[in-house]
Design a protein around this nucleic acid. Structure first.
Lengths: 167, 167
DNA sequence: TCCTAGTGGTTCAAGTTTTAAACAATACCT
DNA sequence: AGGTATTGTTTAAAACTTGAACCACTAGGA
């Protein structure tokens, strides 16, 4: 197959995307860092836990949801555990598994940070988009996710894969 | 002002975006790392230089384009210079400034990597999008960029800020 | 039962990157 | 001249990531 290049329109879209994504990640990260002392990834760990039933999740599942290696997750959870925002628990049915549980303090931190985070997302993103564009964005990002993951579910958010191998 | 929360639709869009962005960054980074031995940021440095007039750019301008600190850029350029992909040059008119110049080897590396990168972007993103969506994506990302930068130009790509303080 | 393969998680060492603060060398302005 | 702002680099510390090695346990036969 000869090289497939981006069309001019695609080129423009890609550049716009790269610029926006980099700026956005930077902005969000900075704000979260200032407000909670932790980077976006760690905030996401807390957020995912907060939405899981009983605020708990297997390490492996959590890693899969966040699309990061288990090693990386262990590192992050260790830090969060040191800060008292997360607690580890064993599992009766399978003694290998560890379960990360969001502590009350972790939940408190999350709730304290949420308004600022939401405000940030609003001003950075949604204040500038029409309702149609919001829909389009979801659609487009969904397509990209499916494209990369090759049709397998369990992305970050939405149809969360609770009830997978859990007992 | 009471807290402004995301509407359900915005919530969905935001989640979809976060997931896609993280996956995409990961994919691109991994592919570039495998193919060129350098992360996306460094590839971007080369790419920006390659499009600049005479393939050269002031450190400060480059940093601004890429939205990174000068310190971070210095680090990156040093690495690229050690690999022979970039060369530093002084400036006659202002002896403080350093100019990063893309070497022929750097250009060669870039050109060698470009096809694989393009292919990756195509399969990961554009193969899944309709022409309308491509336009929408550009539009949306442009709006986000403007939202964050508060109407100031000079984003990453497109209307590049050559001719700023140079000379 | 015992053996083997596979899973779940952590640890370890190494390397990379990031940050922030401090510097040195100019340039600019009055 | 003298004070101030810019440019870029350096520095040391910290944070993060990776990959391989590793332990403990589970599962699935023979």
């Amino acid at each position: 197959m000869t090289t497939r290049w981006l069309s001019p329109a695609e080129q423009r879209a890609w550049r716009a995307y790269i610029g926006a994504a980099s700026l956005l990640e930077d902005t969000i990260d900075r704000q979260l860092q200032a407000e909670t002392g932790m980077p976006h990834l760690y905030y996401s760990i807390l957020a995912m836990l907060s939405e899981a039933p009983d605020r708990r999740l297997r390490m492996t599942d959590l890693a899969e949801i966040l699309k990061i290696t288990r090693s990386r997750l262990t590192y992050g959870v260790t830090r969060l555990a040191n800060d008292g925002l997360v607690r580890r628990e064993g599992c009766h049915s399978d003694k290998r598994t560890q379960i990360a549980v969001l502590t009350d303090e972790g939940m408190a931190v999350l709730e304290r940070a949420a308004p600022g985070h939401a405000e940030q997302v609003m001003t950075a993103v949604f204040d500038r988009l029409t309702p149609e564009q919001v829909g389009q964005l979801e659609e487009i990002c969904g397509a990209i996710t499916r494209g990369i993951q090759g049709e397998n579910p369990g992305a970050c958010g939405e149809d969360l894969p609770w009830r997978r191998r859990s007992s």
